[in-house]
Design a protein around this nucleic acid. Structure first.
Length: 463
RNA sequence: UCCCCGGUAGCUCAGUCGGUAGAGCAGGUGGCUGUUAACCACCUUGUCGGCGGUUCGAGUCCGUCCCGGGGAGCCA
């Protein structure tokens, strides 16, 4: 097929009085005396190209006049300065080719605002709307920015496995992976005989690539994994998915301080990149989705993140004079309302809470000298809560083994993980960034199901 | 999983005290117009989420199930 310029390029370069061909989908058509105005978009940018289709076109009465929202067409003609308001340039068509019709009586997308809830039911078409198309472009850009950030800093990307046979990675319910016939499960002593399963033992979809990333951090120095992650939790909220993308950097010869520095630098980099490269999309979100978006993004860029210990956070909450639904006490995990108070009311900017009680954090987090807390950090963003969770890892074999035993974890199945401490162990640290939550923050989108193309949530995989 | 709210035309919603259903938009037809969420006139569209109950009569009241949204928990 003929290679045609993208509309984004045309709108930027404005090659006036030249013959060009554009291909895309119709956003809307308005008829006037002797001509039709076609709003054409090809997905390259939010703005579309206005195409003028005169009545004199060979197929005007047979095709052009029948065009409606959603139709796929090509338009060839001259790009000229537009005499009317609303656009700088427009294409005066000499030829219109219809690739695909979109019968208006059945095409779900109308020339009007739809609720995000409705658009979820047509997930395969919603990328054609202004807002969801903009989300997709921001998502792509942020994904690229993540790669840039780490590659520029000498990190290596590790493709950690999606299928895991670890009994538990300590991060919630897992999806089982099996090739057994579920109608006729092989039994042994009344239980399923996984020795006859594909891997010879129970297997699941990963809930985190961290443990594997640690192995390669202790080989290549600084690494990151970035890929799909799965949680079989029955979570029904606007910030949880059963399948989501998680970024997990892991650094050797690094402590909690360095971990926090990297996380803060990354978050600022991503937002700055978005502001610089997705200006048109952000303008749309600011106008229709979240009026405070520019101020919130600016707020992150301009300020150092507040860093305070869990112990100090508890003190702040106790001194706040607030009546919380869940009372605050040292040793109890911070509730959403507490996190929100810290980030949104008290400090009004991102907050990093460190050194949580070891009893409420996973086994792999490094025990501090007080023997009561661990070198953990949670980054709380105003509006969406926890966006990053990380820690310095426990690199001491004896301490790690003891903590795993306390947690009731079968050491035998973690020998490889313990080997990392047995042979050439070093202080190391890392964190996990929920990619969709990052997109939510960058776009102001309220529901996480609207920042991933095909969301998977309990009881729902629409497409 | 728990709490709250909701499910009525293709979409967004209204529907009073229980008396068999309406608006805007979309769609269709015609008109007008360098239009831009185009405009004007006319027209079409319903298992009122499912099942059961109360009642002479249920969109409306009760029970139950399903689905969706918000919040909570879990977390990223």
């Amino acid at each position: 097929m003929e290679k045609t310029p993208r509309i984004k390029t045309i709108l930027t370069e404005k090659p006036l009085n030249r013959d060009i061909c554009v291909q895309g989908w119709l956003k809307s058509k308005r008829d006037s005396k002797g001509l039709s105005f076609l709003d054409l978009t090809d997905g390259s940018s939010l703005s579309g190209l206005q195409v003028i289709a005169p009545e004199t076109l060979a197929n005007y009465h047979t095709d052009v006049s029948r065009l409606s929202t959603g139709c796929a067409i090509a338009a060839r003609g001259q790009l000229v300065a537009s005499p009317a308001k609303g656009q700088e340039v427009e294409l005066h068509a000499r030829e219109i080719i219809v690739y695909g019709w979109a019968p208006p009586e059945s095409y779900p997308l109308q020339k009007k605002r739809h609720s995000f809830e409705f658009l979820r039911s047509v997930a395969h078409l919603r990328g054609r709307t202004n807002s969801l198309g903009a989300v997709a472009r921001v998502r792509s850009r942020l994904s690229w920015a993540i790669q840039q950030f780490f590659q520029q800093r000498g990190f290596f990307q590790i493709h950690t496995p999606v299928i895991t046979t670890s009994d538990c990675e300590g991060a919630g319910e897992m999806f089982t992976v099996t090739s057994l016939d579920l109608q006729q499960l092989p039994l042994a002593n009344g239980a399923v005989d996984f020795s006859r399963d594909f891997f010879g033992r129970p297997a699941s979809l990963t809930v985190s690539g961290q443990l594997e990333a640690e192995a390669y951090a202790l080989a290549l120095g600084n690494v990151y994994t970035f890929g799909p992650t799965f949680r079989a939790e029955n979570s029904n909220t606007s910030r949880h998915l059963a399948e989501f993308w998680m970024l997990e950097p892991e650094m050797a010869f690094c402590d909690l301080e360095g971990d926090m520095d990297l996380a803060e630098e990354l978050l600022k980099f991503l937002i700055a990149d978005c502001l610089a490269n997705c200006a048109e999309e952000l303008e749309l979100f600011s106008r229709f989705i979240d009026k405070d978006l520019p101020a919130r993004l600016d707020n992150v860029l301009r300020h150092d993140f507040v860093r305070l210990s869990y112990t100090d956070a508890v003190k702040e909450l106790e001194q706040s004079g607030r009546e919380f639904t869940f009372p605050v006490a040292w040793g109890i995990d911070l509730q959403s309302e507490h996190e929100r108070y810290l980030a949104e009311t008290l400090f009004q900017r991102p907050v990093i809470v460190i050194d949580y009680p070891k009893t409420i954090k996973p086994f792999y987090m490094r025990v501090n000298d007080d023997n009561k807390t661990v070198a953990a950090m949670d980054i709380l963003f105003p509006g969406i809560g926890e966006i990053i969770g990380g820690s310095q890892r426990e690199e001491r074999l004896e301490v790690l083994s003891a903590r795993m035993e306390e947690a009731g974890i079968d050491l035998a199945s973690y020998q490889w993980y313990l080997d990392l401490r047995r042979y050439g162990t070093v202080p190391h640290a890392g964190f996990g960034l929920g990619f969709e939550r990052m997109i939510q923050f960058a776009t102001g989108m309220a529901n996480i199901r609207d920042v991933i193309a095909f969301p998977r949530t309990p009881g729902s995989t629409a497409m």
